[in-house]
Amino acid sequence: MISVKNLYHSYNNDKNYQVKNVSFEVNEGEIFGFLGPSGAGKSTTQNILTGLLRIQKGEAIVAGYNVRDMSKEMFNKIGMSFEQSNVYSKLTAKENLDFYRKLFDVPTRDSIELLKLVGLEGKENIKAGNFSKGMKHRLTFARSMINNPKLWFLDEPTTGLDPSIAANIKSIIKEKNREGVTVFLTTHNMFIADELCDRVAFIVDGEIKLIDSPKNLKLQYGDKLVEVEYVKEGEIITEKLSTVLEKDKKSLQNIISRYEIRTMHTKEATLEEIFIKVTGRGLI
């Protein structure tokens, strides 16, 4: 669905590239996470792919269209939810969606239905300017679905949302993906990426450091250990045992059968820990 080869971009049109030699492919029907700290080049790459920034060097094919010679018809197939809400503050929520509906050449979704989906039911006749930040974000998210996109760009889709609404947004993303929509998710939130993405790319300083599935990364970079805390003769003892070594496996069985277990955790690495290990950088 997306094919990027040797992409470079410099805002000053010089050799000081904000995106350097970026190459990756996104398969149809997958959720691809583009992860990195602020200023890493995530949004720049995404803006090139959506035509908001002119491509300077490299090749990019999006939804079958070459970005260098982009046809406006491509936008009937793609949707984008921006990190910064961008809706008409002088129009109501419904008027906002109704306006955008008319700009597409493909069948569009009903505005009221979309507002209901993102939890803005009953707010359709309120001006977007009177919305809270989270409500505007949801309206922007709803708008990105209006043309039933086949390829869906999501830039920090849950930023600034409370946990229950964020959970709702995540379930919508999963549902759309089940329906066959390809998702390009840009975020610095590793938990969302871990939960949603089939594959992730780590980008730092404009360069992709790694691309793989969260599962493979955890297997590759996580420690195969279990940390167990138990009570032995009135004393609390903590031990780390390998899940691979036969000796440790027997010890673990022994502890479980003989003592009172207080806590037990696998020492699987989080995506964030892997990111730091791979890139040597934090995510903020």
């Binding site: 406006k72 809706v87 700009l103 597409f104």
Partner: peptide, 18 residues
């Protein structure tokens, strides 16, 4: 200016509107 203040030009650019 209204479009700029609401940052909606980028959203318009992602529709088939030239």
């Amino acid at each position: 200016i209204e479009e700029k203040m609401d940052n909606t030009i980028s959203a318009i650019n992602l529709t088939p509107t030239t």
